[in-house]
Design a protein around this nucleic acid. Structure first.
Length: 758
DNA sequence: TTTTACTTCGTTTTT
DNA sequence: CGAAGTAAAA
């Protein structure tokens, strides 16, 4: 009896195929992590591969940590030699060693989205670019997707030739890269891109890593972007022992540059690749899988596969409608409480999934009210909070004097009377003498025209210099404590906002706690490394599964997790799929949302509950959205409640004042913000309903007689041909039961099924 | 230079 | 609704 006997046939094949390229199409819940960990064990124990030669890449630190733990359990010896890491931290390790070859200093810092925005703002100001026309977000987005697809500044400029608008983007891209280089900083995308650049420019470095990583495994392969693919391709080029594991149906990061072609075209890059499909699901009941399969089958251009299980049908999927989001939250909280009290469930067995982070608030409030322990994943990243960023900016300034973004952030926090005018003078001086802004501050006394300002700068420089000198004798935690007390940051927070100051001080303390735990878990702790780790944590990394709490999280963060009880909240067209994707002219956008729905459904092991509200407040506006098309794509027979048969929007229109107890000021205020590109909500309802296949005013009319009868052959767009076994007239529509040749029996409503007689 | 009062704007998802 | 930006005032 060996550890490999518990694997099924395909899993075993995947584990034992150790050489050459391997594409593992692993459906949700098909045990891919098991395969990966067993494969690593097999490589070491059975094939005699040196653990040192193995690289396993995941997307989140959490996934990396879990994999490492499981490998440790399977492999007797040398497991710590394996690189199990995320794309970003693997690249960081390489860059810290070799980035000097690209003209950066190895003490570079990492810019998060906030920092990037600051840089872009500065550039726009400097170049007199109107941010009304060229939005910072759009500029950043363009730069990011250029990088994701490995388009450098030069190439971008060539592509922009002759297009004045694109030329602005190109100019900003160039300035942005130059600023980052000047600040000795990289953004998230650069971490990958610069590593690729390094490998391409320095064959000796590439060769060294190729020799080291003779066996490479990539998890969540469907989420890789072009740059990440190129990185992996380069590393694997020599020995070609590359195993990628992914599921095209779970590709949900296209907006972030994930290139689904990486999976669909893997066999073109590696013609000798073996492809293995894992379709047996060990997680969910058949009903849940049927629902997931039915929904995802509406997407085109996917690798064909269907999940199955030997677990049995299980209970039906619960579908619940509510008047508003408050009642929805009330139900979910109540249902969780009921399951815990009556069915012996634990809180941690339950998770509430939603499309947007904003939905968490109401759910959270309700959980508090009912006294249910919960945890919200995501929202504002801990390290993105103002008070935490302030402290980190101090640390960054001490660590890397060239990081101007950090310096500018804290130079006047707390108030030192160093304002824009002073900084402008310093900047001029710095530019003239080709030194950094911080170095200019050090020489402030010698700068003409500095006047009284020099006296204000002196203590600040003194403070930073003092900590630089003491850097070696202080731990990171001690350093933070010292800085916080020296600048009297607590007082600053109190003056800033008395209300929130307690929470903020708590967060600063939390940061110190994290610094202590960093200190305890690392062999050679350093400030640089601490800042790096802190920059690369994702919210999901902090989820502790051993806490007995209900988890509240977005569908995106839920990927890779599983729960006995799952609630999918806010199943409404306009929210999920989001309004943006519905009106998009690219049908791929809705398909991505559908994959998200697939991910959500397949998180559930035993019970799946879908909820939606007729009315919901979104950005201070009340919206009336129809039920999500994804719910309609689930066969009715799988659910415990019937779908609404369409409704007339006008019968539902505003009674919000009575519902929310609001004074009618919101209604009376003239709608001055209505613009051509953002139509009235009332009009949106109409169009959304039309998109969902509901036509206004039709529900109560007698249904049209279908062109087919019982026993006749019909054809369906998705299911193909079948025989009508039952035809029942209902007040609003005909209910048709069809036995499809390929998909078996389905019950559907005539007006939605659009069946054609053969 | 800093504080305040007011307007404007937007929302998907995040390593 | 809330964050963030802008203009005016102190």
């Amino acid at each position: 009896m060996s550890i490999y006997d518990t694997l099924n046939k395909e899993q075993k094949q995947a584990v034992m195929t150790t050489s050459g390229p391997l594409l593992l199409l692993a459906g949700a819940g098909s045990g891919k992590t098991r395969v990966l960990t067993h494969r690593i064990a097999y490589l070491i124990d059975q094939m005699g591969v040196n653990p040192w030669n193995i690289l396993a890449i995941t997307f989140t630190n959490k996934a990396a940590g879990e994999m490492r733990e499981r490998v440790d359990q399977l492999v007797g010896f040398g497991a710590d030699q394996i690189w199990v890491s995320t794309f970003h931290s693997a690249c960081m390790r390489i860059l810290r060693r070799y980035i000097d070859r690209l003209g950066f200093d190895s003490g570079f810092t990492i810019y998060d989205t906030d920092d990037q925005k600051t840089v872009i703002k500065g550039i726009c100001k400097r170049l007199n670019i109107d941010t009304k026309i060229y939005r910072e977000k759009a500029l950043l987005g363009a730069i990011s997707s250029a990088k994701d697809s490995l388009t450098d500044v030069r190439e971008y400029e060539i592509g922009a030739a002759g297009d004045s608008s694109k030329a602005v983007y190109a100019k900003v891209y160039r300035e942005y890269q130059e600023t980052l280089q000047k600040n000795n900083a990289l953004d998230f995308d650069d971490i990958i891109v610069k590593t690729v650049e390094l490998f391409k420019n320095c064959p000796d470095v590439l060769d060294q890593y190729q020799e080291r990583f003779r066996y490479i495994m990539v998890d969540e392969y469907q989420d890789t972007n072009t740059a990440q693919f190129e990185l992996v391709r380069l590393l694997a080029e020599k020995y070609r022992n590359l195993c990628v594991v992914g599921d095209d149906d779970q590709s949900i990061y296209r907006f972030r540059g994930a290139n689904i072609r990486n999976i669909l075209e893997f066999e073109q890059y590696f013609p000798e690749a073996l492809v293995i499909k894992l379709e047996q699901n060990y997680r969910s009941t058949q009903s849940i899988l049927d629902a997931a399969n039915a929904v995802i089958s509406n997407n085109v251009g996917r690798k064909d596969k269907a999940l199955w299980t030997d677990r049995g049908a299980g209970s039906r999927i619960h579908l619940r409608q509510f008047d508003n989001a408050y009642e929805e939250a009330e139900f979910i909280a109540g249902d969780v409480a009921r399951r815990v009290k009556k069915e012996g469930a634990q809180y941690r067995d339950c998770a509430v999934l939603y499309r947007t982070n904003a939905q968490a608030r109401l759910l959270e409030e309700r959980m508090i009210l009912e006294g249910i322990p919960y945890n919200v994943v995501g929202g504002t990243n801990f390290y993105a909070r103002m008070e935490v960023k302030d402290i980190l900016a101090y640390l960054k300034t001490i660590d890397n004097g060239r990081d101007e973004v950090a310096l500018r952030r804290i130079v006047n926090i707390p108030k030192r009377g160093i304002g824009a005018a002073t900084l402008d003078k310093l900047e001029d001086y710095a530019q003239l003498h080709e030194i950094s802004l911080y170095d200019a501050m050090r020489e402030a006394d010698d700068i003409m025209g500095m006047g009284k300002a020099a006296a204000k700068i002196r203590p600040f420089v003194h403070l930073i210099e003092g900590y630089r000198k003491r850097l070696r004798e202080l731990t990171v935690a001690e350093l933070i404590s010292a800085v916080v007390s020296e600048i009297d940051y607590g007082r600053y927070l109190q003056d800033y906002d008395d209300e929130s100051c307690e929470d903020r001080i708590e967060n600063v303390d939390e940061l110190i706690t994290k610094a202590v735990s960093y200190q305890d878990t690392h062999e050679e702790p350093s400030l640089t490394e601490f800042l790096e780790e802190v920059a690369l944590v994702a919210e999901i990394d902090n989820v502790d599964g051993s806490d007995d709490r209900v988890l509240l999280l977005t569908l995106h963060s839920a990927k890779g997790l599983e729960f006995p009880n799952v609630y999918l909240a806010g199943m409404e067209d306009g929210l999920f799929p989001s309004y943006m994707t519905i009106v998009s002219d690219d049908p791929e956008d809705v398909e991505e949302e559908r994959r998200l729905a697939y991910v959500g459904i397949t998180r559930a092991m035993n019970e799946l509950t879908l909820t939606y509200a007729k009315m919901r407040m979104i950005r201070g506006e009340t919206q009336y959205n129809p039920i999500s098309r994804f719910v309609r794509e689930i066969p009715a027979a799988l659910m415990d409640n019937t779908l609404p048969q369409g409704r007339r929007p006008d019968s539902l229109l505003p009674d919000r004042d009575t519902v929310f107890g609001l004074r009618p000021k919101a209604v009376l205020r003239p709608k001055t913000t209505a613009k051509a590109d953002r139509p009235f909500i009332a009009r949106e309802i109409g169009s959304l309903n039309r998109l969902a296949g509901i036509s206004k005013g039709m529900p109560d009319r007698a249904p049209e007689d279908p062109e087919y009868g019982e026993g006749e052959r019909v054809t369906h767009v998705k299911y193909g041909e079948g025989t009508v076994t039952k035809l029942e007239k209902e007040p609003r529509d005909y209910k048709v039961t069809v036995n499809f040749d390929k998909y078996g029996q389905k019950i559907m409503y005539a007006s939605f099924a659009k069946l054609k007689r053969v």
